[in-house]
Computed example of a mutant assay.
Amino acid sequence: MTTTTQQDLPPLDALTVGEPMALFMALQPGELHAVPDFRRVAAGAELNVATGLARLGLRTGYITRLGNDSFGNFLRGVLAHEGIDARYVVADAAHPTGFMLKTRADDGSDPQIEYFRKGSAASHLSVADAPVGAFPARHLHLTGITPALSPTTRELAFHLAKQARAAGASISFDPNLRPRLWPSPEAMAECINAVAALSDTVLPGLAEGRQLTGRHTAEDIAAFYLERGAKQVVVKLGPEGAYYAQRDGASGIAPGLRVERVVDTVGAGDGFAVGVVSGLLEGFTLAQAAARGNAIGARVVQFPGDADGLPTRAELG
Rank of each mutant, 00 (worst) to 15 (best):
Q232F: 08
A207F: 11
A189T: 07
D264T: 06
A295N: 05
A307F: 02
P179W: 12
I113T: 12
S126V: 00
R292V: 02
A290Y: 06
G18Q: 01
V301T: 05
I63Q: 00
R65T: 06
L203A: 06
H216I: 07
G57N: 04
L27V: 06
P183M: 13
G317V: 08
A245L: 11
A121Q: 03
A50G: 07
K118I: 08
G214C: 10
V234T: 08
L53D: 08
D69W: 01
V233G: 10
T60H: 09
L203E: 05
F116I: 02
T4Y: 09
H216P: 00
A91L: 14
T64D: 11
R138H: 12
L9R: 14
R180M: 14
S120P: 00
I192N: 04
L316Q: 03
T146S: 03
A128S: 13
A54F: 04
Y115S: 09
R247P: 00
F173H: 09
A218L: 07
A245N: 09
R55I: 02
G108I: 08
G44N: 07
H95E: 11
L32F: 13
N73M: 08
D248I: 09
G44A: 10
N48M: 15
A164V: 01
G30Q: 11
T153W: 10
Q6N: 15
L125A: 01
V266D: 07
T201F: 13
R154C: 07
R154V: 01
A164C: 11
H139A: 09
M1R: 09
A197V: 11
D306Y: 05
E190Y: 13
E282M: 14
